[in-house]
């Protein structure tokens, strides 16, 4: 069953005489419960796709259709932002429980719902800390927890691990898979990392340089549950990485030329 149907999506910014076409003719269908990763050179409009699906931006033309879910009272989607997405003035427990607070759930019940989740990701000791007291990895873990506690049908992730060091990234990827597998949530995951996309996704959408279009869609059929670390040692992993890099290489060079021309 198709969960998200994106049809001829286009987005341009700016006035008539200085118009930037960020996105052009973007078509994509995502199945219910599927994990789709989007990779592409910087400025290719991948974040724009995500923001349009999240309803944070309106497309210039084209449509996004989301199949209604069975459960009511849950948000349709929750977004995990790159970094600094946590409210600095709220403690960990308040940040994680934000969606529940917005649904009008009382303080005691919020705590009861959130604490087991913090336990699961090893942050219960820090529930009264403010984000500034946490490391980058812990902060992104809190962001993940906030999105999962909202219990949305669709998870939208905008390079959530981009600012982390290699080891923390690996741990967070493993954790994301562990929480996601069996949750039946549909995921749209934006990343710069080809290896990250292969390790996490069911399919990888490779985008062109600006204006962003789909260049190719690569299915990834490693069985689940996956271990990111073991997957990386698989020779097929390296082969996939190379072939996706070949698709991306020209686009990255084009994007670089565009940037140089603009500056």
């Amino acid at each position: 069953m198709i969960k998200i149907a994106i049809d001829k999506l286009a987005k341009s910014f700016g006035d008539d005489d200085r118009r930037t076409v960020a996105l052009h003719d973007f078509d994509l269908s995502i199945d219910d419960g599927e994990f789709v990763c989007i990779v592409g050179p910087s400025g290719c409009g991948k974040t724009t796709v995500l923001r349009i699906v999240a309803g944070l931006e309106t497309p210039t033309s084209g449509t996004v259709t989301i199949a209604p879910g069975s459960a009511t009272g849950h948000p349709q989607n929750a977004m995990v932002f790159q970094e600094h997405g946590l409210f600095p003035w709220m403690t960990v427990v308040d940040n994680v429980a934000y969606s529940l607070e917005m649904r009008g759930i009382g303080k005691r019940e919020r705590r009861e719902q959130v604490m087991p989740f913090l336990e699961k990701i090893g942050l219960s000791r820090f529930h009264k800390h403010y984000p500034r007291d946490l490391s980058g990895g812990m902060r992104q873990r809190v962001s993940l927890a906030r999105a999962f506690v909202a219990d949305p049908e669709i998870l939208l992730m905008d390079e959530p691990f981009a600012a982390l060091d290699a080891q923390n990234k690996l741990i967070l990827q493993e954790e994301l898979l562990r929480i996601w597998e069996g949750s039946a949530k549909t995921v749209l995951f934006i990343t710069h990392g080809i290896d990250e996309a292969i390790a996490l996704g069911d399919r990888i959408v490779v985008m062109t340089a600006q204006p962003g279009r789909i260049k190719e869609i690569v299915p990834i059929d490693f069985p689940r549950p996956r271990s990111v670390a073991e997957l990386r040692a698989d020779p097929r992993f390296g082969a996939l990485e190379l072939s996706i890099w070949r698709m991306l290489e020209d686009e990255v060079r084009t994007a670089r030329r565009q940037e140089e021309a603009a500056s």
Partner: peptide, 29 residues
């Protein structure tokens, strides 16, 4: 105030009074 806070608030369906009390006021304090 960082735009991202408004994005997060919108994404989680924050109604106006709560947006003011939980996001704008503490952010500007």
């Amino acid at each position: 105030l960082d735009k991202i806070y408004f994005d997060v608030a919108r994404n989680y369906g924050t109604p106006w009074p709560k947006l003011f009390r939980r996001v704008i006021l503490p952010g500007a304090l």
